[in-house]
Design a protein around this nucleic acid. Structure first.
Lengths: 205, 205, 205, 205
DNA sequence: AATGAATGAGCCTTCATTCAT
DNA sequence: GATGAATGAAGGCTCATTCAT
């Protein structure tokens, strides 16, 4: 007989949002953007169709939030992985490997994401994007950048361009080669980073 | 009621195709992919709505053909520009500058194009794409590659990734910087290539 | 192997338009505005769903066109009815009876129509409305008005207000009474006009 | 945790209701029916979204209550205005002027209202409507009607029809003219009524 | 009495594509 | 070779309403 307490409401909201974001990553990652409808996402998330529109102002923005959240979580996990390190170079290496790893592990999702942010009006500053940006800026800073406002966009553009190069249909660039170029550019040791999926790819010296 | 001669027919066909392709480049370059309908394109080209679908098997493929044709023409012009040269390095430099120049001159078109080829089913081998590929392979070969089947995809991926990096919404990478990185990678002299729009950008050594 | 001739196209278009308009009058007249969907209308008209939107820029405008067309046809028929007359008063009487007759015969349709033109943006000058206006202006003119630009709006407003009064839910005004007031206002003889459905209603002196 | 006393509860309820009704008049009067959502109204009234539906059984009914309440208040004020009068003709004149005044002062609101009661199921007997009806019946009675059950609906229909004629989009009827016709019909003196906004309009004899 | 997260039916619209001519 | 009327699936979105608290 009493309205729900604010904290309960917040928890309710948070849970619904997360279910929707998770469902989005899953379905778009599997079937692509156009083949996934908001109805599919709602169904998968176990919420009503309208709730998706209630929380996210559009399909594209939803995907943005979902992928940026995934990138943030992945990056965070890589940076905090044991043995935890404070070494700036090591952290940058881990960041690079985390992003490239996403391209390898979830090619459809990342392709869709890249396509999305390239399209007009496709890039929107959502909360999740902000969190990812913060983490990446911090990584650049700890790496020893003297001008983060210059070096962060550079790293971001290089990473995104690399993701595209790796995912290019027809004749993609081998990840190992791109990793090597990026590592070389930033003066990182090959052994750094440690891609979750194992050691150096085949064919690398 | 005399049947048209085959050659006249072919000429008619060629003209219609070209008008459609030109209209596509223009409209998509101005308004983007989704905001441009096949009806708009047909109207602009001065042909009937149905003719567009009659010549091109889909909207996406039409865009592919249109952009690849533009890239091919641009590249060809750069390579044949006076003073014509047979020097492989110079020709590669010109090719890189031509592609980066397109990204700068027609950002919306190139963004749309990149988004298109990233999407599932987005990349189709059309005639125009073949011609572009041939020219680029030739450039790699004359540059001195010993393994064109390895080096051509590499160059292609690097170029496409660079276009994305340059066009990245939010915080793009400066073209000059990217040009420098590519030239350095391929051991090209800064003075090579000669971007049509002038000499080295400010701030570059 | 030759495109359809323009005249054939026009006939095709006219037929589709009319089927849609007729279906609209029928369905909205039976079930009301909100209970009728464009899909229902398309189905009834035997055309594809999209064709309705192709010809009419919106549901409301479609209804406007449909009802104005009906009013025009009804009015025209009343004015041309045998014995045809050139007498201005008689023609005005017929016009008044025709409009009031519509309110009586198709209450739901006319209620919906009145509601439509009262709503914001609800009144749009469509071709059908123009034709109706022309006929009514002509009637006012032949009646002997010295200032049609003043007297036509007056008649129109009186007629529309009368329709509303006749259709007012809860406690409508008897048509006969309203007819009497209008006829008196314009100095028309009770015997004029001749409503199609018979002589003077019961209870009138 | 002490239960609120019944009277306090009632006061709370009354206040919430009134805030909602006021917000409705304001928002619908400004933006129209469709452009106003229950959410907007709740926000403006400073209550929760659900409370509006809790108090009023539907959007249409809410609007009915809101406008009928406004009409009742306006009418009441006109009838009680100093110098207060018991003269039946004078009171009827005031009533007519009050209603026409509303059409002039709040065109969007009254248009919306008329559209609402014309629509199927649009007319609902709410408490506010009852109060308005009572006041108008009383006015008819004091005016000297011998058959209120016949004359009240007549007056009501004439008034509503007049409001429509005045508000007709495209080519409305001048209020002064309509006022004259109504006054003439009921044998009222032009000087009666006294529209709040001043004396007889220009151009009237 | 009041809250607001959640519901979900239903709507209009767009537009690539087809096909008779 | 070309036309354009017609198709019809698909889609995102709004919003009045419900209900647990």
């Amino acid at each position: 007989m009493t309205p729900r307490s604010p904290s309960v409401n917040e928890e309710l909201r948070r849970r619904s949002r997360e279910r929707i974001l998770a469902a989005t990553v899953e379905l778009v990652g599997r079937h692509g953007y156009e083949a996934t409808t908001l109805g599919d996402i709602a169904e998968r998330a176990g919420v009503a169709r309208g709730l998706v529109s209630y929380y996210f102002p559009g399909k594209r923005q939803l995907l943005q939030s979902a992928v940026h959240r995934l990138m943030h979580l992945t990056l965070e996990e890589a940076l905090e992985r044991e043995p935890r390190t404070e070494d700036g170079a090591e952290r940058l290496a881990r960041a690079i490997d985390a992003i490239l790893g996403l391209a390898v592990d979830r090619p459809t999702l990342m392709r869709t994401h890249m396509a999305g942010i390239l399209q007009a009006e496709g890039f929107v500053r959502c909360e999740e994007q902000q969190r990812l940006a913060f983490l990446l800026r911090d990584t650049v800073e700890r790496y020893g950048s003297e001008d983060v406002d210059r070096d962060y966009p550079l790293l971001r553009a290089l990473l995104m361009g690399s993701v595209v190069a790796v995912l290019l249909p027809g004749a993609p660039m081998p990840v190992a080669r791109l990793r090597a170029e990026l590592f070389h550019r930033y003066g990182l040791a090959w052994e750094s980073g440690m891609p979750p999926d194992g050691g150096p790819p085949d064919g690398m010296p």
